[in-house]
Design a binder for these strands. Structure first.
Lengths: 230, 230
DNA sequence: TTACTTATAGTCAAAATGACCATATATTAG
DNA sequence: CTAATATATGGTCATTTTGACTATAAGTAA
């Protein structure tokens, strides 16, 4: 049994990406509108086919870039979805990825198989094709869980951020209100943040200090786990 | 493009299971010895092919049962492994599952494509076929992480167990020593355990109380997450 | 009876948490 | 210039949780 050529697709396998963005205190999700095929005109998670020449991880990166213009971001496998009837035309198992991006850093470029690419508030998502709403739900639950045990949330912020922005991010993901003072104290003790010695600009109130996170500690905490009970 | 018949296999997709067991304070992993094919005589994770008629989850259950005789256990998807060269003959993406079983409750029955099925101490695993050592490593790391945030460890114990057994389980998984008194206090406050009002039997020392876990609280803690820092 | 093993309960200082309060520093309306 | 109003930043304090120990109880085995 020989493999087809490296750039022909594996019929039974696809990729779908659940991409979270954050802006103005709202958690968003990136969707594309299909331009062709049986799902033309409908909203969907960005995705596509895996080819013989690339790993599944590489396919996810490639597809995300070609559909939205986004590259070099936090992208991690979520789960394979393998119900026999999830895709109408034939049997396709899809490997879902989830990604965290700083929404402001990217301008969306719909790829040539997508007629549109747009951010949606995670609570105002339209009906999606196939089982994509299910995949999205799974991804959101996963993010909620993960953010409490690993410092992944930082991928959603710009490189330099204020403590309030960070707090609002956690509030948006976890859907709770947090005490400002206690939040700061907890982060202080984690030693995860480095004060940039800079101030916020163009705000109509006292400017907050800007922070970035310490990559060394970040890696340690991702491996060892942490507790972010709030 | 039509699908083949429901019981023919999807060429590009397989399943592999990382199955953890626990006995006498040791964490074990279940391996099978292949009886046929290019990997005959070598140890591997239990696995096989997915057919067109079943979901990926169903395939995992079916394969685990046919290879080892084990059914009705905690089985959850781990991750898809999709390196283009992971399988020598053709391009195959495998979906790995991990399972937790009480080793004493099952007698292993090697299926007809396996010549042997055996428990190995998780730290004394032989060289496995393909990328199975990698998959196993990933599964072990996953378990270590998960056990601290969800009460999944209980699936590795018999229905009724002593607090010392539970502690030894955590010690084996996390590779640490824990303080007995503090461990009990922490568990007491979680309200996860129910005292069976029975005593251990046939031990040559003071008999310990037997506990089972409260399924209601168990489900709550699995959803909401918990903190089991030790 | 004594040694040995594990069970189970309790102590106590240190650290962390949760619910507050107080003050500082900036902008803007009047 | 002054007051109103945003947000920043730091602090208090009672309560809870942790970590490191100590002490006693209840069995078996020699």
């Amino acid at each position: 049994m020989e493999n087809p050529s490296p750039d022909s697709i594996i019929e039974a396998l696809s990729i779908d990406c659940v991409i979270f963005g954050f802006k103005d205190g709202r958690l968003d999700i990136l969707l594309v509108k299909h331009a062709e095929g049986i799902s033309a005109g409908k909203w969907a998670l960005p995705g596509g086919w895996i080819t013989y020449g690339e790993s599944v991880d590489e396919a996810a990166k490639r597809l995300l870039k070609s559909l939205t213009g986004i590259s070099d971001i936090y992208l991690e496998q979520l789960k394979a979805f393998g119900d026999p009837n999830r895709y109408p035309l034939k049997r396709v198992v899809t490997v879902a990825y989830y990604a965290l991006v700083n929404e402001e850093s990217y301008s969306l470029i719909p790829g040539f198989t997508a007629s549109d690419a747009q951010w949606f508030n995670v609570h105002e998502v339209p009906e999606l094709i196939y089982d994509h709403n299910q995949i999205l739900d799974f991804g959101y639950r996963h993010l909620k869980h993960k953010v409490r045990h690993e410092p992944v949330g930082f991928n959603l912020l710009p490189a330099k951020f204020t403590l309030l922005q960070l707090q609002e991010l956690y509030e948006a993901i976890l859907e709770t209100k947090l005490d400002k003072s206690n939040f700061r104290r907890k982060l202080g003790k984690m030693k995860l943040l480095i004060n940039c010695k800079e101030k916020q600009k163009d705000v109509s109130h006292r400017a907050a200090a800007l922070y970035k996170f310490d990559k060394r500690i970040y890696v340690t905490l991702r491996k060892s786990g942490m507790v972010f009970e709030l």
